[in-house]
Amino acid sequence: MKKLFLLSVAILGFAFTSNAQSISENAIGLRLGDSDGFGAEVSYQRAIGDINRLEFDLGWRDGSNFSGFKLAGLYQWVFPLDGSFHWYVGAGGGIGSFKNDLPNGRTATDTFFFAAGDIGIEYNFEIPLLISLDFRPEIGFGDDVYDNDDLDFDIALSVRYQF
Results as ranks from 00 to 15, higher is better:
Gly39Ala: 13
Trp60Asp: 03
Phe113Gln: 11
Asp82Trp: 14
Ala156Asp: 02
Ser43Leu: 05
Phe113Cys: 09
Phe98Asp: 04
Thr107Lys: 14
Lys99Asp: 12
Arg31His: 03
Ala10Trp: 01
Leu157Phe: 14
Leu81Ser: 07
Arg46Val: 01
Gly29Leu: 08
Leu30Val: 09
Phe141Trp: 10
Leu74Val: 03
Asp50Gln: 12
Ser18Trp: 06
Leu4Pro: 00
Ala47Gln: 12
Ser158Asn: 08
Gly13Arg: 07
Leu30Tyr: 10
Glu25Leu: 14
Glu41Asp: 09
Asn26Thr: 09
Tyr88Leu: 08
Gly63Cys: 05
Ile155Met: 09
Leu7Pro: 00
Ile28Ser: 09
Phe163His: 10
Glu122Cys: 10
Thr107Met: 02
Lys70Ser: 02
Phe112Thr: 00
Phe69Tyr: 12
Tyr75Ile: 10
Gly29Thr: 06
Leu102Gln: 11
Leu102Phe: 06
Asp144Thr: 00
Phe153Ser: 03
Ile131Thr: 15
Trp60Phe: 13
Phe112Ala: 01
Asp144Lys: 07
Glu126Val: 13
Glu138His: 03
Asp57Leu: 15
Ala47Val: 07
Asp82Cys: 04
Glu122Gly: 15
Asp82Leu: 11
Ala47Lys: 12
Ile11Glu: 06
Ile131Lys: 05
Glu126Arg: 14
Ser22Gln: 15
Arg53His: 03
Ile95Tyr: 15
Leu12Thr: 10
Ser97Leu: 05
Glu41Met: 08
Gly96Val: 00
Ser132His: 06
Phe85Glu: 02
Leu12Trp: 08
Ile95Pro: 02
Arg31Ser: 13
Glu126Met: 11
Ser35Val: 03
Met1Asn: 08
Gly13Gln: 07
Asp57Tyr: 01
Phe153Trp: 13
Ile11Tyr: 08
Gly37Trp: 05
Phe163Ile: 05
Phe56Leu: 14
Asp143Lys: 06
Asp150Gly: 12
Thr17Asn: 13
Phe135Glu: 02
Ala15Met: 09
Lys3Gln: 13
Thr109Tyr: 08
Phe135Cys: 04
Ala115Phe: 10
Asp134Arg: 08
Ala27Lys: 05
Asn148Gln: 11
Phe69Ile: 00
Val42Tyr: 02
Asp50Val: 00
Ile48Phe: 03
Phe85Gln: 04
Thr17Gln: 12
Phe163Lys: 08
Val9Phe: 15
Ile23Glu: 07
Gln76Tyr: 04
Lys70Asp: 02
Leu81Val: 14
Thr109Glu: 11
Asp36Val: 06
Ser24Glu: 14
Gly90Asn: 04
Ala15Glu: 01
Phe141Gly: 00
Asp154Gln: 07
Leu7Trp: 02
Thr111Leu: 06
Phe112Ile: 01
Asp34Asn: 13
Asn124Ser: 14
Leu133Trp: 14
Ser18Gly: 05
Ile127Pro: 11
Thr17Cys: 13
Ile48Trp: 03
Met1Ala: 09
Gln76Cys: 06
Pro80Gly: 08
Leu129Gln: 04
Gly120Gln: 06
Leu130Thr: 00
Arg31Met: 05
Val78Lys: 08
Phe66Asn: 02
Pro137Tyr: 11
Leu130Lys: 15
Arg160Val: 14
Ile139His: 01
Ile11His: 05
Asn52Tyr: 12
Val159His: 06
Val145Ala: 14
Glu25Phe: 09
Ala27Asp: 02
Asn148Gly: 04
Ile139Thr: 06
